[in-house]
Design a binder for these strands. Structure first.
Lengths: 333, 333
DNA sequence: AGCGCGGGATGAGACGTTTCAGATCCGCCG
DNA sequence: CGGCGGATCTGAAACGTCTCATCCCGCGCT
């Protein structure tokens, strides 16, 4: 069908091995031959066949990145960081979206395994890493992103979400709020649980403070909106005076619903999110949030992956970044 | 290295051809054999090698999608639509980000060509489609997304941006505004130019109305912010009374800058964006915008691509969707 | 003249899959 | 009992690349 390395060789009057050398080790080929082969390539419009190359090499030059929500700017930032770093190693990053569905996650993981991916960056949904272990045993290194799984033996890059949750709740308490609602879900997501745990600790340290949990099905604007509607529908006396949303998308949804219902933010309800995505600062009421170094997380995860790919015997490493409170108008700042 | 189809065959006591049949045409294999081969696969932990499969097949089962900005929710929506449709055909979509850089675009295109992609969806930066022609001649179908290139011979899926620009500007004029600023760039992007052209037409139809162009370097929040700062710094008498931003990200940036400078939206300046991304409704002042059926565009582009991949002789098709005005508070709606 | 050396070039596998022409087996018909 | 059609299975070839052991050749040295 297409033009192969063999055609190029014939045209240039050399052997296939030489063409391959021109392609991969141009330094080892004298100028004259280089020139001849290169013009043959140009004349024939030869394009390397990556499938054949990978088959030979045994592994691909692609790194899989499995995220919970490809539309969440937090993850696009992580991806960007990983991509930048990958470019330095001659790799490229492929983004797969699990959408918080375990079966989609499995499918993606299998897909990357069939591709013989160079490695896998994943933000797993549950704690069941059995499948990931298989993958690693078959030679594909795995690095966990945005969370750790205790004792799993996988390297990870994450943020101290318990601390982040604590920062957020304490900020609300410092602002004089006492009845805090935590809007998050699904409960199976470790990030969601950790942030709640942090909030719980902060609340426990203050007399007369309480924490309510409002579960949502996923970390999206739409879910935040319906949660916000529920809150707005409560009689004012029962309504919390502060909301801590498990991420900014939910916070934005809550904000929309409250605004629509005439509930003032931060007057009636203080609101804080998590992730500090770009859009947080541009919200109806600029949103306080917890910032994570998303881009750096992606880059770090990828470089760990590269090291483990080169030497699978490396001991797993857990990198934990510290979250940072960003105060804006939604909490009265 | 890994477990191959040959190992499975040996274990199950059949030939490689039979294993391949079990994998690809299970109907043609009797139950007993099926069972035997399947358990051999399970026992050995066999995983198909996609590189080998693709090498044999001559083309991959991946569709490349090259976008101008992977972080722009408009494009993530397009990708989502394409992805959904791709799943129906057993394909998967790979997103590449050109970031409006022609050289990055070229690199991505080459990458997909080396992969022998099943096809290419692209939102090209300039009008120079020579490279895309080459690609197609070598057997990879190409469909243009979010814009057309007249006479290029490529199928395309787009929105009538001239009409969209007209809708936006006319809406501002209907609201009584007369001095409109169009914030957009780079000028090389067809979408940017078309929307400006539409605005020009609308303005030309109204006595005493004027249109100023404010160029920005890229379609991002940050660029919008600096443009907004420039506008806010003008003496009130010279300041436009309405801004039409080339997309919502820019509009959000403009909005932030104006708010910070104490310029009221829509009091002093009415503001409208383009794309109607999710965050538009959640902005400081909910943003009027021009909606595009982004998800449907992605799905349509992909299905055209599949048809052309099956029959390369098909005549190119141009699908044009109509944009829709969405009125919110930022224009006084 | 004989020898060793080294830069260049060669070309035969091997990677793992799919395909496909042909072999094998079995029941059944004439 | 020979032959036949269909179901089932086989195994070699081919896809395009890279690697590596080998070969070639010219040159300087003894």
């Amino acid at each position: 069908m297409g033009v192969s390395i063999r055609d190029v060789a014939a045209r240039a009057g050399v052997s296939v091995g030489t063409v391959s050398n021109v392609l991969n080790r141009p330094d080892s080929v004298p100028e004259a031959t280089l020139e001849r082969v290169r013009s043959a390539i140009a004349e024939l419009g030869y394009v390397r066949n990556d499938a054949a190359r990978q088959l030979r090499a045994g592994r691909s030059t692609t790194v899989g990145l499995v995220v919970l929500d490809a539309r969440n700017p937090f993850f696009t930032d992580v991806a960007r960081g990983a991509d930048d770093e990958a470019a330095l190693h001659g790799l490229s990053v492929l983004i797969g979206n699990s959408d918080e569905h375990p079966e989609r996650e499995l499918r993606l993981v299998s897909h990357f395994e069939e591709q013989r991916a160079h490695g896998l960056l994943i933000s797993p949904i549950g704690d069941d890493v059995a499948r990931l272990r298989e993958i690693r045993e078959r030679g594909i290194p795995v690095v966990l992103v945005d969370r750790t799984v205790a004792g799993s033996g996988f390297s990870s890059v994450a943020v101290d979400d318990v601390h982040g949750g604590e920062l957020a709740a304490r900020h609300l308490l410092d602002a004089g709020r006492r009845r805090i609602a935590y809007v998050g879900g699904p409960a199976g997501l470790r990030q969601v649980a950790d942030r709640a745990e942090g909030a719980r600790r902060a609340v426990a340290a203050v007399d007369g403070a309480s924490l309510d949990l409002a579960a949502v099905a996923s970390l999206t604007v739409a879910e935040g909106r319906t949660a916000g509607e529920r809150l707005a529908a409560l009689p004012a006396a029962e309504r919390p005076d502060a909301v801590f949303a498990a991420n900014d998308l939910i916070a934005l949804g809550v904000l929309q619903a409250l605004a629509l219902a005439g509930v003032s933010v931060p007057g009636d309800v203080a609101l804080i999110g998590y992730d500090d995505i770009d859009f947080a600062a541009a919200a109806t009421v600029p949103l306080s949030s917890i910032r994570q170094p998303s881009r750096r997380m992606g880059a770090t995860a990828l470089s760990i992956l590269v090291e483990e790919a080169a030497d699978p015997s490396l001991a797993p490493r857990d990198v934990v970044f510290e979250p940072e409170l960003v105060v804006r108008a939604s909490t009265g700042g």
